[in-house]
Design a protein around this nucleic acid. Sequence first.
DNA 1: CAGTGGTCTAGACCACGGG
DNA 2: CCGTGGTCTAGACCACTGG
Lengths: 242, 242
Amino acid sequence: MFKRNPSLTEQVKSYLKQRIINAEFETGRIPSEATLATELSVSRNTIRDALSRLEMEGVIFRKQGAGTFINEANLLVKTRLEEIVPYENLIRDHGYTPSIRLLGVVQESAGYHSLRTELELNSDTPLLIIDKLFLADDQPVIFTRTYLPANLIKQPYTGDDFGPPIYEFLPKFCQQELAYYLSEIVPLIATPELADKLNLPAEITALLSLEELGHNQENQPIIKAVSYFRSDLLRLRLIRRQ
Amino acid sequence: MFKRNPSLTEQVKSYLKQRIINAEFETGRIPSEATLATELSVSRNTIRDALSRLEMEGVIFRKQGAGTFINEANLLVKTRLEEIVPYENLIRDHGYTPSIRLLGVVQESAGYHSLRTELELNSDTPLLIIDKLFLADDQPVIFTRTYLPANLIKQPYTGDDFGPPIYEFLPKFCQQELAYYLSEIVPLIATPELADKLNLPAEITALLSLEELGHNQENQPIIKAVSYFRSDLLRLRLIRRQ
DNA sequence: CAGTGGTCTAGACCACGGG
DNA sequence: CCGTGGTCTAGACCACTGG
């Protein structure tokens, strides 16, 4: 039924996820691992790996001796902060229509000393600074500033190439893969500049910002990104486990 | 070399983690999976499961065809928000000496309607409200308020039993296990009450709060906890993956 | 008690990396 | 090319749940 590549585990995971989304398991319970293994003609280990991934994503939960069950509650929280997801999805999950405005792309050759230290760059490496604004029903809700060392870029590009998320730009133009962000969550009081960009009300407003250092698979820092969220309009959620 | 229970995988994980912490692998590289399997007399799958967990924790990273390596950079970030960890550890990792002050435990029988809805409680279930303050070198840095339905408690307890984290109280006194928190991150401007509790400077300060609904393994909400962090003194970090 | 998920084994083949 | 991690299999035993 399945071919290799993508891996059997990944295919089984997608297959089961789709069936869950289609509400094909009416009882909220998923067939036993042995049953699935027989039905799909793969070993039970492969089924278990697929189920483990779905459990990590919060789609299902398992109970020894009882069975595997669909996690109805958590299907409601689709975008969670511990996963890298396009901000458009975050906005869409709040019931708004997302749109993006590319505010500008500039190149800086000097300054930004602390940033260059974080990215382990020489003091003369040019930096691309990309400003983007995300809107929910035409109301600004997220402002992001991304710092990309210019020497990473191996292919010619245009400004439009920065419309999609940066982790789609990196493989195409830099032969780099974004493996993870190490992020710091900082609350702050909106500066006049930010209040203007995000169209904030006149009163003093608390904002949430995410200061992130993006790393590749070799664990080297490759990009820096800072995001500012209007948390009165967006809910930033997270699952914490032991 | 190892016995069953805790699982071989868990023992191998702890064993390798300890050797990493002891800096026994000078090259920054860990022996191959096959070598470890032979040395420890377990199957390669068991080794792989243990390594996968260490990779999830950010302790190591693997590269197909090359080997398994210690993640020097991420060893620095020990406490991360996506993991449930005692706040004492968070404070200790910032170089301070932690201490806890139990501010009060009160029982409320009425009100808190939205909270009762979240916890799926009847409107007359008594609620225990536990206030705690965490200090770093005697400076208040975290204030937490925990809401615990009184009908969960099956054993007699004293106020001192609330000194340790609530997820240690739950198994002992409620026969409940905290499986995960579904948390929402909210920035806010300190209220006078909070500024007083956290000994904040007179200027307007942005705080970070975490509003969390704790669930058991059956996925039912069991407790609510709200935490307020002085993020000028503590750095709240997180790893985000795809 | 039967059925479930949790753990573990031994062996196999593949894809990738570096010398 | 060889050694590495990545994937997959078939089979086994255990611990737990629920009727």
